[in-house]
């Protein structure tokens, strides 16, 4: 139920896969909300993985925490927000050894930001597994004021910082972990189409 088939898009748009067990000495999972279901699926297929697993999970109002705990991962942390979890994530990455597998799942914003942390720790983005689950909301950067608006679900939307009306581009920056929002009414101020839910 939590899976969504993204339409074909331009080449900077991330493509997500399905988490697969990979051999490794340690397994780091970062997930939010329905991303828990991807971990549960993986654990059902490969229960042995959990003995070396560290799960960092942000529920975002969902109810999967007990099920994840029941998997008996070696380490488990429930964070109230992604921002609250970042220090722990960095700590894990900084102290990681060769043979660490990284699995990211849940919303695009969560996966993008965690991937960026892993890249900064020296892991190539191509070596990181991702699986989208749950909300299709996007993390958007306003190209004008550079402010980030989280969980954008309509196009166009209003920048949470500078208040400009922005349209949602598919152009995506891994380094910023965000899509690009560009002023929609620059050439005709005030002429802003009704917001439409993404992918509708």
């Amino acid at each position: 139920m939590s899976k969504f088939q993204f339409p074909e898009s331009i080449k900077s748009r991330p493509v997500y896969g399905t988490l697969e067990p990979r051999p490794g000495k340690a397994h780091l999972f970062v997930a939010d909300a329905e991303g828990a279901e991807a971990i549960l699926d993986l654990a059902a297929a490969s229960p042995d993985l959990m003995a070396g697993a560290h799960i960092i999970y942000i529920p975002k109002g969902t109810d999967f925490t007990e099920k994840l705990r029941d998997l008996n991962p070696a380490q488990f942390y429930e964070g109230p927000t992604y921002a609250a979890s970042v220090q722990r994530l960095r700590h894990v990455l900084e102290n990681a050894h060769q043979g660490l597998q990284v699995y990211l799942t849940g919303t695009e914003g969560l996966m993008g930001q965690a991937q960026n942390e892993a890249m900064q720790a020296g892991i190539p983005h191509t070596a990181i597994q991702t699986e989208h689950r749950g909300s299709v909301a996007r993390r958007m950067q306003c190209v004008h004021c550079k402010g980030i608006t989280e969980d954008v679900i309509t196009d166009p939307f209003v920048c949470a910082h500078c208040g400009l009306n922005l349209f949602v581009r598919d152009h995506y920056s891994r380094r910023l972990a965000a899509y690009q929002g560009v002023c929609i009414d620059a050439e005709d101020p005030g002429n802003v189409p009704e917001p439409v839910e993404l992918y509708k």
Binding site: K11, S12, Y172
Partner: peptide, 11 residues
């Protein structure tokens, strides 16, 4: 910045 050739030409 940081994108590959296909990504920065994506649009």
């Amino acid at each position: 910045i940081g994108m590959n050739f296909f990504e920065w030409h994506a649009p």
